[in-house]
Simulated assay, not measured.
Amino acid sequence: MSELGYGYGYGYGYGYGYGYGYGYGYGQNRGGGGLDNGPKSAALISARDGVVGPWSQASSSTPTQYPDGNPSNVFNWSPRVRAEVFRNILLAPIDVVQSNDSWTSLWVRHAIAPPALVTDPIVVPASAQLLQMQRPSTTLFKEQLEWVNYWSSLRPERMNEILVETEDILAPMASVIDVDPTRMPYTFELLGAFHQTVVSVEMRFKNAMACRRPVRYSAQIQPMIQTPGHSTYPSGHATESFAFAYLLATLANYREQAGPGTPHSAMTEQQIAEQAYRITQNRVVAGVHFPVDNSAGSQLGLTLAENIVHRFRVAAGETPNTPPPEEPVVVSFTDADNYDFDYTKYWPEVIPGLCSAAPPCPPQGVDRNPDAILAELWKRATAEWTR
């Protein structure tokens, strides 16, 4: 897992290594205007005493309330509060189920609306299994030590990248397509909510798999960075990098399809995928992951990203609410699968883009409040890519 700083210390942490620290001072306000320190509070007390005068009930007014249930209401709050709302909505239908054996699965569970409210022409099942993951044997992990040792020769060359990526994986990926938090604030809110959702799910899988890191198999690995204090399998950097890659490639498609003069999305998509691969492989170079960790993490990240992006697009009325695949992605490796990581085996053939219909695709189903909030965030973020 990479520590992207999102939300930590109430700073909203949208810096992602850029140094902007999106919010410019949100880090101290906790919703109170950035004035929660002794000298400023004392100044406000004395200022009020000097200017307010005697209390007058007649001078009070009744403000107009925001419309009840309006999805745009969330954008009247601070980014820190919005982040919690977005993350809660995104995580609500996602479930991770651990079996009694070595398998753990990813499910999405849909709310069942009363028949009178169901207008979708497609019937979506109440629950769908998206992915199954099996814990590899210690035999395979031990065999993969040879790959970890092989890649360690690149440590001097990759050191700066590895150290940056320990805390920040979005900055090197975002540099491919010019994502700027000062010009694209809603995109960064989307990326932040998306990232926290992915991390929450990946940690559930790490806890279920409970696999030891390479250095526990051999002291000769001697990692070049501190070994993280959680399971090696699946790789968090792989999960997050490839989830980000899918989302950013989707947004790149929106930018290209909005008009001429933008980089060709196929080339951009390939470069984003290659950057995700490099970030992921650097964890093996550093000595804290096995290649098989990356194979599992990339599949988890892409599966999650595809589902989350689909939910956003359905909520925004850009695509029909089609059922998920009938068969889940199966992540399983035998003792004979002692291979290096190859992301091209898992990268999807098609990345979504702008709806090709004119006028835009009709909304699917009822505008229920949680979905409407997702739709509002998606529309505001994607608008930043089409101007």
Score class of each variant (00 low, 15 high):
247 L>S: 00
82 R>Q: 09
264 H>R: 10
314 V>R: 04
228 P>K: 08
249 A>M: 09
335 D>M: 08
37 N>F: 14
74 V>K: 04
81 V>N: 13
227 T>Q: 09
129 Q>H: 05
141 F>D: 05
232 T>Q: 07
223 P>D: 01
104 T>H: 00
126 A>C: 05
301 G>P: 04
35 L>G: 11
315 A>P: 00
116 A>Q: 11
95 D>I: 13
94 I>L: 11
311 R>K: 09
369 N>K: 13
235 S>Y: 03
156 P>C: 05
320 P>V: 06
319 T>Q: 06
370 P>R: 03
180 D>T: 15
280 T>N: 05
253 N>I: 02
135 R>K: 13
34 G>F: 07
186 Y>T: 01
305 A>G: 07
68 D>T: 14
353 G>L: 07
105 S>P: 04
51 V>Q: 10
358 A>E: 14
387 R>Q: 09
50 G>C: 12
133 M>D: 00
363 P>A: 09
259 G>H: 04
92 A>D: 10
234 P>E: 03
352 P>I: 00
155 R>K: 04
7 G>R: 06
83 A>T: 12
320 P>C: 11
201 V>A: 00
42 A>C: 10
375 A>C: 08
191 L>P: 05
39 P>K: 04
377 L>M: 06
348 P>N: 13
188 F>D: 03
58 A>T: 15
355 C>V: 14
237 H>I: 02
173 M>E: 06
171 A>Y: 12
381 A>E: 02
84 E>P: 06
230 H>S: 10
94 I>C: 06
81 V>I: 14
348 P>Q: 11
131 L>Y: 02
29 N>H: 14
303 T>H: 01
251 L>P: 02
37 N>Y: 11
129 Q>Y: 02
